[in-house]
């Protein structure tokens, strides 16, 4: 594809077009990823996640600017929610990153979740691959504002930064399972606000309870809109990357994610295959009726369906 060559030479418009293809066109997307897959795997992929309004976009903006001081090429994918009713979306993360728009070494793309619930869009991982092939040294994925269990970002990033803010609840929140388990680095933003020290202390206490003695995630207090302590956060992100590399964990982590992605692709295709085989001839509806009437159970029918494919 002509667009791929242009993108590999650093053409932003081509890069943007390719991201649209992975968002919109499944068949073309497949062809495209097949061609560029070998160029991926070079960038350090950083996930920034946390509740709505925690300051993820502002933090991303400040962090990207810091990376630009060292001339790194930076890609940003900012995900915002799509309406489950209309399919429309307001993608507003760019508001905090406007002065990065003109930097030739920065590429920012907003994505709607389009029905995906894990904090990312379905096409986010493929968009990351395009930015990786495009030549980004760092790719920052900003998730939608998350609640307690949107943890897809661990499948896509090398380093996960969990952004918290003061005032979101007591210390029991910090020992719950889910989102609090995925941070490789914790950032307390808006640390000029009352209660920030307490929030940091609660996270620290949670981390000290952990049985994992290999590495304890650091907690950094920042005030993103005043550009305070962003350098410290950047250092900790870099330190985490070095830790992964030195202990052979980067390879391990990426392999785990690659395997997961492969299995997801197989699962999706298998499901399509079953639907194709059973929907048009009414078989799927017949099976539904059988189950409704309790003539058999779903596991038996599953096995029967799978054996027809084999």
């Amino acid at each position: 594809m002509e667009l791929i060559n242009k993108m590999l030479k650093g053409d932003k418009r081509a890069c943007a077009r390719l991201i649209s293809i992975v968002e919109n066109d499944e068949k073309e997307s497949e062809k495209l990823i097949k061609k560029i897959y070998k160029y991926t795997g070079k960038a350090h992929i950083i996930g920034i996640t946390g509740p709505p309004g925690a300051g993820k976009s502002t933090l991303t903006d400040k962090y990207a600017k810091l990376l630009r001081k060292s001339d790194y090429i930076v890609g940003v994918i900012a995900v915002d929610p799509t309406s489950p009713y209309t399919g429309g979306a307001i993608l507003g993360d760019r508001i905090r990153m406007n002065d990065l728009a003109l930097d030739p070494g920065v590429f920012i793309r907003s994505m709607g979740t389009r029905g995906y619930l894990g904090g990312l869009a379905k096409a986010t991982r493929n968009a990351v691959k395009i930015l990786d092939a495009y030549g980004c040294d760092y790719i920052i994925i900003e998730t939608v504002g998350v609640g307690q269990s949107e943890v897809d970002i661990v499948k896509a990033a090398d380093t996960v930064v969990l952004v918290m803010v003061p005032g979101l609840g007591d210390d029991i929140q910090s020992i719950k399972a889910g989102i609090m388990e995925i941070g490789d680095l914790f950032v307390v933003n808006k640390s000029d606000l009352f209660g920030a020290q307490r929030t940091a202390t609660e996270i620290n206490m949670m981390l000290d309870m952990s049985q994992n003695t290999d590495r304890r995630p650091p907690v950094v207090m920042v005030t993103a809109n005043q550009n305070k302590n962003i350098d410290q956060m950047a250092q900790e992100i870099q330190r985490h990357y070095e830790y992964l590399v030195e202990n052979g964990l980067l390879e391990e982590r990426r392999k785990k994610n690659i395997k997961r992605e492969l299995l997801e692709l197989v699962e999706e295709e298998l499901k399509k295959l079953v639907i194709r085989e059973t929907e048009s001839n009414g078989e799927l509806d017949r099976m539904t009726d059988i189950l409704f009437n309790k003539e058999t159970d779903p596991f038996t029918l599953r096995d029967r369906l799978l054996s027809t494919i084999k």
């Binding site: 932003k12 077009r17 406007n98 002065d99």
Partner: peptide, 29 residues
């Protein structure tokens, strides 16, 4: 209104220069 009509709206906010608008439009395709 455009969101409610099923469109993806990239909202860039106040005080944009023409250069910023065009750069954003291209990156966002």
């Amino acid at each position: 209104a455009l969101r409610d009509a099923g469109m993806e709206v990239i909202y860039t906010g106040l005080r944009q220069t023409p250069e910023q608008i065009v750069a954003a439009a291209i990156q966002e395709d």
